[in-house]
C-alpha cells in the first residue's frame, strides 16, 4: 500500500525529527501545566480586554487609561495597583488580588483588573455572586 511505502520512505532523520518535536511538545505542555495553577490577570478598559497575563509572571505593567498611566504590579502570585493618576487612589487602596473573580476597579481611569481562573471546573467558590 502507498501509505506503507511512504512510511518506509521516511528516513531515520525524519523519524528522529518527528519524535523529538513530539517530545518537545510534551515537555512544554508539562512545563506550562506545572507553572500555571490556573489564574490569570485581565485588564479591561471600557469593557475591552487590553491586557492579559498569568499571575505567576512577575512584572510591572503600565496601563493606559483615560487620565494617564496606572501601574499594575504582579508579584508573588498576586496583582495590585501601585500607582494611579486618579484623585482618590481607591484602586491602590484596594490592595492585592489573587483569587478568581476578584476585581480592582479604577473608575476615574476607566480600568478594571480582574483575576480569572483558567480551569473553571477545578475550583468552585461555593457561590455564584458575592455581595459586599
Amino acid at each position: 500500500m502507498a501509505l506503507r511505502q511512504i512510511w518506509a520512505r521516511m528516513t531515520r532523520l525524519d523519524r528522529l525529527i518527528v519524535v523529538s518535536v513530539a517530545f518537545l511538545c510534551l515537555l512544554l505542555f508539562i512545563g506550562i501545566g506545572l507553572s500555571r495553577p490556573g489564574e490569570t490577570v485581565e485588564v479591561y478598559r471600557d469593557g475591552e480586554l487590553v491586557f492579559r497575563a498569568p499571575l505567576q509572571e512577575e512584572r510591572t505593567v503600565p496601563l493606559e487609561g483615560s487620565l494617564g498611566t496606572t501601574s499594575l504590579m504582579i508579584e508573588g502570585g498576586t496583582a495590585r495597583i501601585v500607582d494611579s493618576p486618579c484623585p482618590y487612589k481607591v484602586c491602590v487602596g484596594m490592595g492585592a488580588i489573587d483569587h478568581s473573580g476578584e476585581i480592582i476597579a479604577c473608575v476615574p481611569n476607566r480600568l478594571l483588573v480582574r483575576v480569572v481562573s483558567q480551569d473553571e471546573s477545578g475550583k468552585e467558590p461555593g457561590y455564584d455572586l458575592l455581595s459586599r
Partner: peptide
C-alpha cells in the same frame, strides 16, 4: 451586580442563586 449590590432575575437554571456574603 453593581459592585457587590445585587439583584437577581429568576433563579439560576432551576436552582436558587447562591450569594456569598463577604
Amino acid at each position: 451586580n453593581a459592585g457587590g449590590d445585587l439583584r437577581l432575575l429568576g433563579d439560576r437554571d432551576g436552582t436558587p442563586w447562591r450569594i456569598g456574603i463577604q
